[in-house]
Design a protein around this nucleic acid. Structure first.
Length: 589
RNA sequence: GCCCCCGUAGCUCAGUGGAUAGAGCGUCUGCCUGCGGAGCAGGAGGUCGCGGGUUCGAGUCCCGCCGGGGGCUCCA
């Protein structure tokens, strides 16, 4: 937000140092002042002193850095808006005049409104593929992480100025679906989910059953393989059954996405790239990239051999020995199709769990070897999995899962109790809305407030606790701000420069609000929602401290007017960052 | 065997190469006749896994160990 001011200062500092004969680096890097309740930048002078020493001057770096800082501090003409300058321990500290710049920040936030924190379009398009559930299975907590992560990454990239295509890729065909169909035909033919029973759940239970049966009777595997071949021949009856049953799952997905407030611009289905995938593999064989070992073995791309490497990309299986498709068969074709539809994609991001790192590298490398110029624009955004305590991985196949719909239901139920306890006066409808906002917000925040490549261990206790660094803390700050504004009649005073000496809590709040745009950029570039969850907490904390320390409505008119505007700006900033995290900002709770 | 990820307070985790390593939970102590206490303030609690290296400066970068997890020919 202060690039302009920094650039002007940098010009002056460079001139001063040049005059003194100090060799200058290409860039001077400012940092924020590390002292709470202060506002400004610091310039470490160590790199300059170090450069001098490297050029042969016998100086002691820390000492020389301090000398340089003092020299600059003494001769610097502070531009308007700067309060003071000091040289401490080799740092040049530049303090902003909070009165002067607070108006700058507050005015901008109020003027930009919901756009504050967003950046201008950069004319680049990216695709984010995420969620990727399989039909005929249920969604569980594990899916929640990738789904929320992808959604928020898409939101952040959009805020950073990219045009984003939000894509989903549904696993509606594959061995798991064939297994399900086999079990259905053999043991449940003609059945439908009973009325009143959750269809997706009913479908999922049959999947668990199918795996159990096959485990107990391995001899039935042959029937499953036979069914897969029947599928491949395009058997109309089988296809009709598939279409009907897959719909039961799709309805379940639909419902969850609506609950999570997540939408997609383009939904791909594995079934739609199955045939093109096989053709693609055939081309690979003809080009000599893939080796056809059928009927004794699968079709394989031996990447290490092709690239003259050892034990790096390994060999990559792209088609079964019986000619049926694999995940890889379809993923190759899908990548091609994406770039046919959107040739100008600057990046195609795959939000997929970290266990598939090698697999995706194999996909990318195969496409590179096949000569696709966009292969280097494919990017795997890897995230660690959600486990149960004791490093127990969730497995739909064995039915050892926390179902997503169940988790959401429980979380809302728990939130209802807490709303009842904290704010019994609310009307029932509002209570319900608040419970949903708090419950869903908490689940999302928990999934996002962790480094992408670190595990999340799921426990009911933690999932249903809304305390500490969590969504409700931030939502509560928003509610408090909203409450003050409501009491002021929702009238935000005209823009004004504060005439009072700002309280440290005010300074801290303003400087946190001012950081939002750069945090958004930082988060988007690293695909890291954690940057934003942390900043959301920092802003909320600064607001709660301000709330405690600085009376607004009872203050004298000029102070009151400025603080009302500050509250309005803080509320807006909190609402905006919550929106980026796809978390609701309630008015009451 | 090869490759990838993770080791920071009792627990769960933050920490663009920069100043005295910070939060939450738990624990101990305070603060509601000032705008909503789902809040605020304070105490106790650290050889940042170990050993080298790079650097003016390393929790952060590089190398090697140790410990935990994951992946590596027909699951997705």
């Amino acid at each position: 937000m202060f690039e302009q001011q920094q650039r002007r200062l940098e010009g002056q500092i460079r001139a001063l140092l040049e005059e003194a004969g100090v060799p200058l680096p290409e860039q001077l890097n400012f940092t924020d002042l590390p002292f709470k309740g202060t506002w400004g930048f610091a310039l470490p002078m160590f790199p300059l002193a170090a450069a001098e020493r490297r050029s042969g001057k016998p100086v002691r770096v820390p000492q020389r850095a301090q000398e340089l800082a003092e020299y600059v501090a003494q001769h610097l003409q502070l531009p308007e808006g700067f309060q003071r300058v000091e040289a401490v321990k080799g740092y040049l500290n530049l303090y902003l005049d909070p009165g002067y710049f607070s108006r700058f920040v507050v005015d901008r936030v109020i003027e930009e409104g919901p756009r504050y924190g967003h950046h201008p379009p950069r004319g680049q398009r990216v695709m984010v593929e995420f969620s990727q559930p399989n039909t005929h299975k249920a969604l569980h907590v594990g899916h929640l992480r990738g789904t929320i992560l992808g959604d928020v990454v898409a939101r952040m990239l959009q805020a950073a100025g990219y045009e984003v295509i939000r894509a989903n890729y549904l696993g509606d065909i594959g061995l798991h679906v064939i297994k399900w169909l086999w079990n259905y035909i053999k043991f449940h033919n003609g059945e439908e989910p009973p009325p009143g029973v959750d269809k997706a759940r009913w479908v999922s239970d049959l999947y668990v059953e199918a795996n159990k049966r096959l485990e107990e009777h391995p001899e039935w595997e042959a029937e499953v393989r036979e069914l897969f071949l029947r599928w491949d021949r395009g058997d109309p009856e089988l296809r009709a059954l598939w279409e009907k049953t897959r719909q039961w799952s799709l309805e379940g997905f639909e419902h969850i996405y609506r609950t999570l407030n997540i939408t997609f611009d383009r939904v791909y289905y594995e079934s739609e790239v199955e045939e093109s995938g096989k053709r693609f593999v055939q081309e690979l064989i003809e080009k000599g990239i893939a080796q056809d070992q059928r009927p004794d073995g699968p079709v394989v791309v031996d990447l290490d051999r092709l690239l003259g490497l050892e034990e790096t990309y390994r060999a990559f299986v792209v088609l079964r020995s019986d000619g049926t498709s694999l995940y890889s068969t379809k993923d190759l074709a899908l990548a091609v199709q994406k770039f046919q539809e959107y040739p100008d994609l600057a990046r195609s991001i795959y939000v997929v769990d970290i266990r598939q790192s090698l697999y995706l590298q194999q996909i990318f490398k195969t496409l590179e070897v096949a000569g696709y110029p966009w292969a280097d624009r494919l990017y795997h955004l890897a995230y660690e999995v959600v486990t149960l305590p004791g490093n127990v991985v969730l497995k739909t196949r064995e039915g050892e899962v926390i179902f997503l719909d169940e988790l959401i239901r429980e979380a809302i139920q728990r939130a209802r109790q807490i709303v009842e306890e904290k704010n019994p006066a609310l009307d029932p409808e509002t209570k319900e809305q608040v419970a949903r906002a708090v419950a869903l917000g908490s689940l999302k925040y928990t999934m996002l407030a962790r480094e992408n490549n670190r595990k999340v261990v799921f426990t009911w206790e933690k999932a249903l606790s809304f305390e500490g660094v969590a969504a409700p803390y931030i939502q509560y700050a928003h509610v408090r701000a909203r409450s003050i504004l409501r009491k002021a009649g929702d009238q935000v005073p005209q823009a004004l420069t504060p005439t009072h000496t700002l309280h440290p809590a005010e300074v801290e709040l303003i400087s946190q609000i001012a950081r939002l745009p750069e945090k958004v950029l930082q988060a988007a570039e690293a695909y890291r929602p954690l940057t934003l969850t942390t900043h959301a907490y920092e802003m909320a904390r600064a607001f709660n401290d301000f709330y405690k320390e600085c009376p607004v409505l009872q203050a004298e008119p000029p102070v009151r007017d400025f603080r009302l505007r500050l509250v309005a700006a803080a509320r807006q900033a909190l609402a905006n960052i919550l929106a980026l995290l796809n978390i609701e900002a309630p008015d009451v709770m």
